[in-house]
């Protein structure tokens, strides 16, 4: 059985949202940063069991430093969300708790994954210190560049969404 699930990927600009999706969908990576405007939509069908498949429709939203300004139409019909920040740039996670509060208002009851991306740019010790300093709680620490835990992130969310359905 094939189910469709819309997942929005959001966060500040330059945190690697597009790269995460590209790594997951095509298993490629580019160092060239190209700003996303509006929304890019891609699809990947994954098997979650012998009988069940899920079609993940990934909405790569334009990065913004103000979550409030995200167009509501982009969020209509969202099943799951991924909030991405850049572990090497504090400005992308300093307002994390208020960003998440706004997201919860915009997407009530929608499962959300919090992701610290660009993990290849900082050491584990630095990450630990960072998480302690800013009291960060993340679901996945990823690197679109190396591919670290990227597939796990999307697979986990897919399982969560299909289990809910």
């Amino acid at each position: 059985m094939l189910k469709s699930k819309k997942i929005v990927v959001l966060g500040h600009f330059g945190v690697g949202k597009t790269s995460l999706i590209r790594r997951f969908v095509t298993n490629t990576f580019s160092d060239n940063y190209k700003v996303t405007i509006g929304v890019h939509i891609t699809k990947k069908v994954i098997e979650i069991s012998a009988e069940d498949k899920v079609s993940l429709i990934l909405w790569d939203l334009e990065g913004t430093d103000d979550i409030v300004s995200i167009r509501n139409s982009y969020l209509l019909g969202t099943h799951g969300a991924i909030f991405v920040f850049d572990v090497s740039r504090p400005s992308t996670f300093q307002q994390l708790s208020s960003d998440l509060a706004i997201l919860n208002e915009k997407l009530p009851k929608v499962p959300l994954m919090i992701v610290g991306n660009k993990a290849d740019l900082v050491s584990e010790v630095e990450v630990k210190a960072l998480f302690e300093k800013y009291a960060l709680k993340v679901d996945f620490l990823t690197s679109a560049k190396t591919g670290k835990t990227v597939n796990e992130l999307f697979l986990n969310l897919a399982l969560l969404l299909t289990a809910d359905a």
Partner: peptide, 12 residues
């Protein structure tokens, strides 16, 4: 035609 339409919010 495009996955955009696959994710249109049917309830709306």
């Amino acid at each position: 035609f495009h996955p955009f339409f696959e994710s249109l919010p049917t309830e709306h």
